[in-house]
Write a protein that binds this DNA or RNA. Structure first.
Lengths: 326, 326
DNA sequence: TACAGTTACGGACCGCGTAAGCATA
DNA sequence: TATGCTTACGCGGTCCGTAACTGTA
């Protein structure tokens, strides 16, 4: 068993069991990958993938376990390389972030700009995807930081730090009946079609829950990860939009009316995280402190050494809509 | 960076920085180890060990971090081998246990006998040591299971399962003034020299605490890991011994009087554990259920998947002196 | 025929052990 | 002089890429 074999194994898994693609990803030739995987299977004594004729089709139950541990091996090996890079040149490296749509679109751009000015030799990349996708990217070491809102469930192997909290805002066209109101009720909202800014799985919508509890039903006519789609819909006068307050741009959305909805919906927490046990380069600490002032080096380091998420949560208490920065 | 280099690195660390010894331990020659470590240092770009002339003396701070991650790599790689062994021959393998003196001496022998009868092809070995020593053995993968009493502090990276609970017993010679008493008080005890069965660090003695709280001082004249030493001392009539109840043998200690002391001292918990995230062979599950009936496969598997020790503790509630087996 | 994976072959490289060299007590 | 690590050297294995082969849609 060699690290190379485990790299091939992991790459094959991440390339939909296509050896040719996996080989290309690692800058190797296809026979090399094929041979090393055959050798690994022979050494382990059982098949890792089931063959569908000549093509590999899917992983066996045993293979799944092996891949899980293989990835752990590779992550720990990457940690060694990170320690080395940090010592040799702390200001040079890579920062790969995975984020869901809203964070990538509204929260990150200004921070990224600031970060790149401070660390011109750090190659920055941003990978937008669903929470499932970015969790998988982190597991395969393709990204170091993850940013998402809620969906904690998917990130149990992560150290999660609260970044900021926010409320939904109601967005309507200027001509809409609700345009002049403040503090609209659930009953009022329930008479209109709703365009909702999707956070996680559609079935886990906190919006539906709020309506149900008040004895009404939400008529959700549109859901989208991209708040701009919601705005377009609202501009057409088709109903009421509900989006993150960060997604409301005072200038470009001047034709729309946005109404505070903090009395209706619970606050969301946008957090940033990394895989438990992974090495954090110094510039990652810097990035986090740029992202939110309360994520300073000392507190992040303390969170990093916590064994459980519960301990971390006590380090970052929440008051009302804000994470408290002592 | 290769797995072999990490193995050499880890072995050197565990051989007191003696390359010759490390090479012998791994069945390699000394130049091979020397060269691979030099290559690794060159690849990483910094020294891992500080040289004291020609000999290696100690690890650098950076080296310490690298070793930490190198060991993790090796543990995860071992997990892959364990998965493989389990699939190829579930009844063949190794079971290496680290235990402190009392467990190795009194609790384990009968279980080991039973286990070896059921699994003749599993090579069993038992390694007795201080809690510090066995924790270090587990970190370097030399043992898979750990058994100890209290000293939780040293085993934060472990999954700990309560095995059984026990009280200290007072042991005196038949001619001793306390021989006829039941429920002796702290005041009575404080007039005699005490020989204490040592559990963890001498400064963390719960005995001293009990005495202090009652307003007395314990005159501890002897401490020992081996309860037999305490018995010898008591036989000489030199004072009062306090040992684990498991260490009292009805037949062989018939010349001594043992007195229940559960009213005086808090119960101790003897636990068994393994490193978090390690693969457990099927026969390890069997061993655990032989060790204590409440450690059945289903519950151990559940504990294994817990992320925190606190979760595990709720799986094994305690009532009085016993771990509850539902 | 196109596609995906395996087998065959020759070359480069790499890691090992033996043996000699070098520094420190 | 003994100990412990490093360098030199030659061998054997191993890994790789190119190329040819096999099996499947």
């Amino acid at each position: 068993m060699t690290l190379q074999q485990l790299r091939f194994l992991s790459a094959l898994f991440e390339s939909d069991f296509n050896i040719t693609a996996a080989a290309a990803k690692l800058g190797a030739t296809q026979p090399a990958v094929s041979r090393q995987l055959a050798l690994l299977e022979r050494e382990l004594g059982f098949t890792l993938f089931s063959r569908n004729g000549s093509a590999y089709s899917r992983v066996t139950p045993a293979g799944e376990r092996v891949i899980e541990y293989a990835r752990r091996v590779l992550r720990e090996a990457q940690n060694i390389k990170d320690v080395s890079a940090e010592i040799n040149d702390p200001r040079r490296g890579e920062l790969r972030i995975g984020a869901t749509h809203t964070e990538a679109r509204y929260a990150l751009p200004s921070v990224i700009q600031q970060f790149q000015a401070s660390f011109p030799s750090v190659r920055f990349s941003l990978h937008q995807g669903t929470p499932e996708q970015i969790a998988e990217m982190a597991r395969s070491n393709r990204i170091q930081l993850v940013m998402a809102t809620d969906s904690d469930r998917l990130f149990s192997q992560f150290v999660r730090l609260p970044c900021y909290r926010w409320h939904g805002r109601i967005l309507v066209a200027a001509s809409h009946p609700l345009a002049g109101t403040t503090r609209p009720s659930v009953e009022q909202l329930s008479t209109y079609a709703i365009a909702e800014h999707l956070l996680e799985a559609p079935d886990a919508s906190p919006l539906q829950e709020v309506f149900t509890r008040a004895g009404f039903e939400a008529r959700v006519a549109l859901t989208a990860q991209d708040a701009e789609i919601i705005k377009t819909y609202v501009r057409l006068g088709h109903g009421v939009g509900i989006i993150a307050d960060a997604a409301v741009d005072a200038e470009r959305d001047a034709d729309l009316v946005s109404i505070d909805a903090s009395h209706l919906f619970p606050a969301h927490t946008t957090w940033v995280g990394f895989m438990r046990g992974s090495v954090l380069r110094q510039y990652i600490y810097e990035f986090l402190s740029m992202l939110a002032p309360h994520l300073n080096g000392e507190r992040v380091a303390r969170a990093h050494s916590c064994a459980t998420q519960a301990e971390i949560d006590t380090l970052f208490p929440v008051r009302g809509e804000d994470v408290i920065s002592p």
